[in-house]
Simulated assay, not measured.
Amino acid sequence: MDETRTRGQGRTEWYERSAMGETRSTTSIHVTALDGLVNVNSLFTIAVFVGLSLTSPGQRSLEGNSACDAGQDVIRNLLVFEVVSFSFFLFSSLVAQGLKLAINLINSNDVDDAFRAHINARALRLGMLASAVGSMMGCLFLLLSMVNVIQIRLGMLSCGSAAAVRAVAALVTLVSTALVVYISTVLYAFTH
């Protein structure tokens, strides 16, 4: 009887170790995905600060026609879009960093049980989804702010500046395509 119990305990320990190894490899994939999201958000945050440096009033466009210069409303919109974009990127990065911290505490062998984090799979998925949505919204507002940067530097779209129209068309086409691919990939990952 003791021999049977010992064999049963050995099997249970093997299953626990096997499940733990599977969990660690799965969560290491989550940590890698969250690292990538934080890195991309950091790059976009640099773009936000570049846009903020262009918010000084009285700038003349390269169009050469004073009627094509951006007004105060365009500069105000640029500032608002940049701040909202930065807020979404910061939200996304902080959620991702919090999830990474929880995952690392769960998988750490050196942490006492009192400090060990307990996170369930549903909370992890919702957190990752919230972080991805924050990043997407940040990209959308960054796109809007870049349209205003183009209008400030190249002339208003309403003025018919050919350079501004081409730049905005390229920007909107490429970023929209990338966002559709990103959204599709995130939805596919969360439904499969």
Rank of each mutant, 00 (worst) to 15 (best):
Q151W: 04
S184K: 05
L142P: 01
S66F: 06
P57K: 08
Q72M: 03
N109L: 01
V84F: 00
H118P: 00
Q97M: 10
I103A: 14
Q59S: 10
Y15K: 12
R122H: 11
F190C: 08
F141R: 02
I29S: 12
G134N: 14
Y182T: 04
R125P: 00
A163F: 11
F86S: 05
S135A: 09
I29V: 12
T4E: 08
H118S: 15
R60K: 10
F115Q: 13
E3H: 05
A132R: 14
G98W: 09
F190G: 05
F49E: 05
G51V: 06
L187S: 06
N120A: 10
T45A: 07
L124N: 02
A178W: 06
Q59V: 12
V180S: 08
S61A: 14
T173A: 13
E22H: 07
C68R: 15
T173S: 09
S61M: 03
N104C: 15
G10K: 07
F115R: 10
F88A: 01
I46K: 07
S158R: 11
V80Q: 07
Q9C: 03
A47Y: 04
T177L: 14
S61K: 06
A178T: 07
F141Y: 12
S135V: 03
S53A: 14
V149M: 01
A19W: 06
F115C: 10
M137P: 02
G160H: 05
N77M: 13
L124S: 02
N109R: 03
N41P: 08
L140E: 11
T27F: 09
V40G: 08
M137F: 14
T45S: 10
L129S: 10
L54M: 06
L143H: 05
A19M: 13
S145N: 05
S56R: 15
V149D: 01
V84Y: 01
I29Y: 08
M156E: 07
S18H: 12
D69W: 14
N39H: 10
I106T: 01
G71W: 11
I46S: 06
A167R: 15
Q97L: 13
Y182D: 03
V147N: 00
G8W: 02
T23F: 13
A162P: 07
S18E: 06
S61I: 09
I75T: 07
S92M: 00
A102G: 02
M146A: 06
M136F: 15
E22A: 08
L34F: 07
T55M: 14
H30D: 13
S131N: 01
S93H: 01
V181A: 13
R5Q: 10
S66R: 15
I46D: 06
A169H: 08
R122G: 09
S25D: 08
L126F: 15
S56G: 11
N107C: 10
V80G: 06
N120Q: 08
F91N: 04
S61H: 09
L78S: 12
S66Q: 15
F190E: 15
H30N: 04
G71H: 06
T4M: 07
A162C: 03
G134F: 07
T177P: 00
A163M: 12
L78Q: 04
N148K: 14
V180H: 09
A96Q: 04
C139Y: 04
G8S: 04
V175Q: 11
G58Q: 08
A130G: 10
S53N: 07
A67P: 04
F49V: 04
L142A: 05
F190K: 02
T173N: 12
S87I: 00
T12N: 03
V147Q: 00
P57I: 13
T45G: 08
